[in-house]
Amino acid sequence: MNSLALQHSRTLLIRLSAAILIALVAVFGTVSAASAHDELTSSNPSAGSTMTESPEQIELNFSADLQQLAGAETSVVALSAEDGTKLASVVSTKGKTVTVVPEKKLASGTYKLVYRVVSSDGHPIEESFNFTVKLPVAASATPSESATNAPAPSEPAEQNNEPIQQLGSQISPVIWVIVGIAILGAAIAVLVKFTRQNK
Rank of each mutant, 00 (worst) to 15 (best):
S35T: 09
D83L: 07
I181Y: 11
A189D: 03
S172T: 14
H8S: 15
T148N: 13
K112P: 02
I22F: 03
N198I: 14
T52V: 13
F194S: 04
K86G: 13
S32Y: 13
K104S: 13
S108K: 00
A152H: 14
A72I: 00
A157P: 07
P173A: 13
S75R: 01
P173D: 12
V117P: 00
L184M: 14
L60C: 10
I164E: 13
T11Y: 09
M51V: 09
A33S: 14
P163Y: 01
L16G: 03
V192Y: 06
S80V: 03
R196G: 10
P151L: 01
G109S: 05
L21T: 14
T93W: 00
K112S: 13
T110C: 02
N161R: 14
K104T: 13
T74P: 01
G95D: 05
N149T: 03
S63W: 03
Q67N: 12
G95F: 04
A72F: 01
A47P: 05
V179S: 11
V91T: 04
V174Q: 12
S9V: 10
L40S: 08
D38N: 08
I171R: 14
L79V: 02
S54A: 07
Q166Y: 07
Q165K: 15
L66W: 07
G180T: 01
T85C: 01
R15L: 04
S108E: 03
L4M: 09
F28R: 09
A107S: 09
A107Y: 06
K96Q: 08
N44D: 12
S63T: 06
A141V: 10
T85V: 06
S80W: 04
A5L: 11
N161L: 11
T30L: 06
T99H: 08
P143L: 12
V27L: 02
A47C: 06
M51D: 06
L191E: 05
G122L: 05
E53A: 15
N149M: 09
A150N: 15
V114E: 14
A64M: 12
E162C: 06
N149C: 04
Q170I: 11
L191Y: 09
V31P: 05
E53D: 10
A33I: 14
R116N: 10
I14E: 15
A18G: 03
A23P: 02
L79F: 04
F28S: 10
A139Q: 09
S154N: 14
E39K: 12
G48D: 04
I125R: 09
K94C: 02
S128P: 01
T41Y: 07
H8M: 12
A36L: 09
P143R: 08
A81P: 00
A33P: 05
